[in-house]
Design a binder for these strands. Structure first.
Lengths: 177, 177
DNA sequence: TATGATACTGAACATCTTGTTCGGTTATAT
DNA sequence: ATATAACCGAACAAGATGTTCAGTATCATA
């Protein structure tokens, strides 16, 4: 990829991340983004159709990297759920600066929906380990959302606790250990 | 209150509800609302400062009614958590037409934050009944969010299950029964 | 290092949304 | 019946959106 493209793309991502820390997603304008990233208006639109598309691209970039390979590998290696989750949390902390804004931002549903999808896929692999009477769709959603909330709590407390601790808190309140 | 005010207010609420069923909150414009409600632009702004304020007013109206008295009363009467939650769900179903849009809408954080607040207050009253090692703020958030997700699942399945069933699902996956 | 291709710039643009103002009209309470 | 208050609707400035285009800078590569 052309160096210029990469540079512009990263400048926009960075600007967007920064803005998300102080402003709700829906209140961030394209104008804000191009001002902060210091790129031309037409440049922005040549990269991303809309603000939503920008967010989607950003999610893909991050999550594809974090979840890459880990999910299926771990299951086949028979590691337990808590270990897998710890691993995911480790990766998330590496991306702290990229994602903190989105977790703290009041309204970034696209981001959350994305993460949710990945997590449901992860939990579905472990479905047999659970023994709930509630419908599996209910349970899978419950676990995914609960894990996202655990991450939110973690980010809010500046990711002080270890990934293992957070994973333990999670498996405790969901009775999945 | 002047009949006209009440009528206008209700027309706006109704229009907003309808719009939320088909459109995300952030993509609904004031223009949409006044077109649907068939009220003048200035009329809207004489009732609500912003779109956010409209949503807040709507939340207050609904939740104040639903939670009115119930929370504290039930605790003092020593009813168990599941019974209280069933009660809340009953009330919610009565408001089905008002709230379905907000639960199905992808992005109505103000609404959710509101509900979350009420729920945390409710769960906090029962905090002694739980025996989790995770920090209480973590646990309270976990329970509130999990309950909201249970409601979302319920609304998505058109509130077919009984409130008791949903409450049971919830207490099962959170191990709070 | 020369060159064609490609990405960026920045200004202009029509269009839409917002929130306010104000004179005129209609409904309400008593 | 009348004073009060709410509504209407048109107009407005300010700002955002998404597009276009001619000009400039940077890239890959030969």
């Amino acid at each position: 990829m052309d160096r210029r493209q990469k540079k512009t793309r990263e400048a926009i991502f960075k600007a967007f991340s920064e803005l998300l820390e102080h402003k709700r997603y829906e209140h961030i304008t394209v104008q804000d983004i191009i001002d902060t990233a210091d790129v031309g208006r037409s440049t922005f639109y040549s990269h991303f159709e809309t603000k939503d598309m920008l967010l989607k691209s950003m999610c893909s970039d991050i999550f594809d990297h974090i979840f890459e390979g880990n999910i299926c590998d771990y299951k086949t290696e028979n590691k337990d759920l808590e270990a897998v989750l710890s691993h995911v949390l480790w990766h998330l902390r590496e991306h702290k600066t990229d994602i903190a804004g989105m977790f703290l931002s009041e309204s970034s549903d696209i981001f959350m929906r994305y993460l949710h999808e990945y997590l449901e896929r992860l939990f579905r692999l472990h479905l047999d380990d659970f023994h709930f009477k509630a419908p599996s769709e209910f349970v899978l959603n419950h676990l995914s959302v609960s894990f996202i909330e655990a991450i939110k709590w973690w980010v809010k407390t500046d990711m002080q606790a270890s990934p293992e601790t957070v994973a333990k808190y999670f498996t405790e309140v969901t009775e999945t250990h």
